[in-house]
Design a protein around this nucleic acid. Structure first.
Length: 482
RNA sequence: GGGCCGUUAACUCAGUUGGUAGAGUACUGGAUUUUUAAUCCAGGAGUCGCGAGUUCGAAUCUCGCACGGCCUACCA
């Protein structure tokens, strides 16, 4: 710490301030306006010579002998300051201020001869001394690793980053608005779980000392939320973090934000409508339009979205009807299509690999892929009229899965059979099959109404809205190696 | 997991065939009372990611490791 020349200079300035009885870290400073307000109200503030008090980070300082210009920024914008030796009360301590310092000042507004709104500073105060030099003013902070690891510096130097996270916040708040208006109740269920479930994924494990046993961080909220439907709530949702002990890439972070909702007396068709309307709402509120630009493609979200059946779509592309086919045959077909899968892959897993390789990348417009294989959907109800499929869909946009939804299986006897099938698959080596959850089965026996359930990946939605190529650009502190 | 690329001053980046480590910004000192990527003059600043090896000599060549980026695979 403090081992570079620039850091030592800042320490010297800090000590000099202290010597003049100036606290470099005072407790409070009351502003009269934000920078944005100051600019917006320039006419009335400047004509009355009204004193304004503002605060922010010193981003640039230009000394001209007996006068000095500086730029400061707060969350709302930036503004220029002007100091004059004869008029600014404490002009001489200016040389102890460095870029990066948090400062407050009081003064009146005027425009320079180039029409720039500027504060003529009467008095100024150190609010927090910065001991770390800022990155270069012109190129900013470019190094991706540093930007992710030191996001606070990234936010200071790259204004577009702030915009992304403001939009993320707005998206999440509009999702809540949308659901609240539809009378969904927001609930909180355990993150720390004795048994994980609701998705196919490897969990993070942890040890709970008081109970002397291992716990898991949740991989999904599904089973607890269904218990609430059983308990009598009609519409519930939860918006929070799930955790999956898997690889890192530009679409995956080990902790990610997911929204799950469940609605009694509904099915997966109703869930499709909710997805369509939710996106319509988000686009209207955030973009003021019905289209998005993502990775150079214009995406139109006009209702209704396309619905394409999982098996039929594969058949149209390959000429092969996989419904009801034996595993061996499916495995060979995958091979001949040039798709490699693990030896112990289940039929559903092979089919999903085929789908995600040869169909999914070409789905650009918002599309519901519907009616999935049963063995990869143990919590979904069988499809009406075709017992080999389930009523499940995934919304796909620009080749990206952004969620998952079912008509929820509510027959406890069939659910037990599905869990047992999962157990069998697990014994054959499919380690990510869903564990049998006795507690959930017991709850189902009490009776769950017909229910539609939906999960949406919030991070992926934020990627779409902010046209971000990597999940790391839309998570404030993404996981990196330590 | 595999492939390719990268890591040099606080930041953004050059660095030729292996021969004393460079620029711009930032910083320090000086000049400068409407500048705004201010300007002018002078100056300081480096574990060249880490560790081995080859060599008289390595930022540069070789090997290993770490971290990152892109692609690919896996993660339904």
């Amino acid at each position: 710490m403090f081992d570079t020349e620039q850091e030592r200079n800042r320490i010297k300035n800090l000590e000099a301030l202290k010597k003049q009885n100036i606290d470099p870290y005072p407790y409070k400073f009351s502003i009269t306006h934000t920078i944005k307000e100051t600019r917006e109200k320039f006419d009335s503030l400047s004509s009355g010579k009204t004193k304004v008090k503002i605060a922010g980070r010193l981003m640039a300082i230009r000394l001209h002998g007996k006068s000095t210009f500086a730029n400061i920024e707060d969350e709302t914008g930036k503004i220029q300051l002007y100091f004059k030796k004869d008029s600014s009360l404490n002009y001489d301590i200016l040389k102890l201020f460095d870029t990066g310092d948090i400062v407050g000042c009081e003064g009146t507004l005027f425009k320079t001869r180039t029409e720039e709104i500027t504060i003529f500073v009467d008095t100024f105060n150190m609010l927090a001394k910065s001991l770390h030099p800022l990155p270069e003013k012109w190129h900013g902070l470019q190094d991706k690793e540093k930007r992710y690891r030191e996001r606070e510096l990234d936010l200071i130097m790259n204004p577009e980053v702030k915009e992304i996270f403001l939009m993320r916040s707005k998206i999440i708040s509009e999702i809540r608005n949308f659901l609240d208006k539809k009378e969904f109740i927001e609930v909180e269920t355990p993150v720390l779980q004795a048994l994980y479930g609701g998705a196919f994924a490897t969990p993070f494990e942890t040890y709970y000392k008081a109970l002397d046993r291992n716990f898991y961080l949740r991989i999904s909220d599904e089973l607890y939320l269904k218990k609430l439907i059983i308990g009598g709530f009609h519409k519930v949702y939860e918006l929070g973090k799930d955790f999956r002990n898997e690889g890192l890439d530009r679409f995956h972070n080990p902790e990610f934000t997911f929204m799950e909702l469940y609605e009694a007396y509904s099915d997966y068709n109703d869930m499709m409508t909710i997805v369509e309307k939710l996106f319509e709402h988000l686009l209207k509120e955030i973009k003021g339009s019905n289209t998005l630009e993502f990775e150079g493609k214009k995406i139109n979200f006009k209702r209704p979205w396309k619905r394409i059946p999982f098996f039929k779509t594969i058949q149209e592309k390959t000429g092969i009807d996989f419904i009801g086919k034996e595993r061996k045959e499916i495995f060979e077909s995958a091979k001949s299509l040039g798709i490699e899968v693990e030896k112990q892959a289940t039929t559903g897993k092979i089919l999903e690999a085929i789908f995600s390789k040869i169909i999914q990348p070409d789905i650009i417009e918002p599309t519901f892929v519907i009616d999935y294989p049963k063995d990869i959907s143990p919590l979904a109800k069988s499809k009406r009229g075709n017992d080999k499929l389930v009523e499940r869909f995934e919304p796909i946009i620009s080749g990206m899965e952004i969620g998952n939804a079912f008509s929820e299986l509510n027959d406890p006897i069939e659910q037990l059979a599905r869990f047992k099938l999962q157990q069998k698959l697990r014994d054959k080596g499919a380690f990510e099959s869903q564990p049998l959850d006795e507690s959930f089965l017991a709850s189902l026996e009490i009776g769950m109404p017909p229910t539609g359930g939906l999960g949406l990946g919030i991070d992926r939605i934020v990627m779409l809205f902010t046209n971000s190529a990597s999940i790391r650009d839309i998570i404030l502190f993404p996981q990196l190696r330590t």
